[in-house]
Design a protein around this nucleic acid. Structure first.
Lengths: 235, 235
DNA sequence: CGTAATTTTGACTCCGCTCAATTGGCGTGG
DNA sequence: CCACGCCAATTGAGCGGAGTCAAAATTACG
């Protein structure tokens, strides 16, 4: 079974201890007073590529996209993020943010200064481990997308995308079978390496096949097994 | 200008201090006696997906590929690695390796136990920073590939691939204009999300266009500017 | 309520995949 | 040494899926 498109909480747990998805679990107990809350309006920008890297942003509420753009007009959406996921981790390497992050709806993030994480890491080795695990799980997430972009066709990518969204919503206590897409067809296309028309066509095809019930941004997954079958068909 | 396909050493430096590519810089001074050397023959396997994560492997000599495979036969090459680059960092998150690593030629790697890195990290905060930078630079590398897979056509991907290889060879003191491909056309295709025939065809096309001089695995870049133009043409 | 943005659908084109045949290099064994 | 088989690479022919262009429908929003 393909397990495309983490971050799904289920990817993370491994040994005995549950790995909380981000800084959240620590956040509310320990960070109080150090972290601040920041509100970003729909369409607003949390940070831009080339901004100096200073903070991590665990999402408290809302929905974000991250965009990787090189000068030259070419750009691609590298991820969609929901509460309990963490934004801004690509900055560790270069000291600068590599992506821009935009809110797809009114959102709130925790602002966690990197300096604070460093201090904490010195005192508590577990925090070091936790941070490495967090950042490396982002690698795993990206590699799943690479696998999708490199070896799945359009309808398989869309199926994998929907399955992943569904699981992440479910893991967060929302319905996994019916949810509102916060992004446009064009944004889904950018993320999946497809044109918006192709995305739209396959939404229609899935509907016709009885897998989905789509009304613009509202998606109801009618036949989960069927979606998985789309993925495993052309094994 | 596109900057696809890190890891190129030039991606990393940011502030004043030069970020060494891996554990190497520390390795020879501090690690002596703790790290061991491991030889892997051409075609041999350094580690497999689902192996328990215990060590990092900075490459001392040779050439590797990493393969991401899900049960179901679908698999994809996620990277090619050369000396001074580090293998095995996806394991932090889950405690298990996510990729398999195979030597494309007789190779040597340093074996650095994770436990040792942890100890070191407690004593020296700079090591913590270094490790986070290292892992997060892998995210940046993967996102470049995502951008390539998602928004470049076949000839652009191949051009970007060759430019990246060239820069990495140059950065390591080898010739950047003439080098031996350690991987097959099929492996290049897997990495770029293309069929091997497509890769071969575009090699021929580049040759015909006077950009390259290709003889099986030996590639000479005749016109670097031209290769870059291929990337920026369909801006 | 009117304008803009998003989505859907159709028709056509073309790039990359598939299938297939050929060539050349290389190692093994007769 | 050559014969043979194996694998990698090249090249061709034909097809199909996704891109492109275009128009209409529906929705969002000021």
């Amino acid at each position: 079974m393909l397990s495309l498109f983490p971050p799904s909480g289920r990817q993370l747990p491994a040994r005995g201890r549950k790995l909380s998805t981000g800084l959240e679990s620590i956040s509310f107990k320990t960070y109080r007073g150090v972290t601040t809350l920041r509100r970003v309006k729909r369409g607003g920008c949390l940070f831009r590529a080339h901004d100096v890297f200073r903070c991590l942003y665990p999402i408290r509420s809302g929905f974000f996209k991250t965009v990787l753009g090189d000068r030259g007009g070419r750009e691609q959406i590298t991820g969609f993020f929901m509460p309990r996921e963490v934004l801004g981790m690509e900055g560790f390497g270069s000291g600068y943010q590599q992506n821009s992050a935009y809110a797809l709806e009114d959102s709130e993030v925790h602002v966690v200064p990197y300096s604070f994480i460093q201090e904490l890491g010195c005192a508590m080795p577990s925090v070091q481990r936790h941070m490495l695990a967090l950042v490396s799980s982002e690698i795993v997430r990206n590699q799943s997308i690479m696998l999708s972009l490199g070896s799945l066709d359009a309808k398989e990518r869309l199926a994998a995308f929907l399955i992943n969204l569904s699981e992440r919503f479910r893991d967060r206590g929302y319905s996994g079978s019916e949810f509102l897409l916060r992004m446009t067809r064009a944004e889904i296309g950018s993320y999946l390496g497809l044109q918006l028309e192709t995305v739209s066509r396959h939404f229609s095809a899935f509907q016709k096949a009885g897998l989905l019930d789509v009304h613009e941004k509202l998606v109801a997954i009618v036949d989960v097994k069927g979606l998985h079958r789309v993925l495993n068909a052309r094994s």
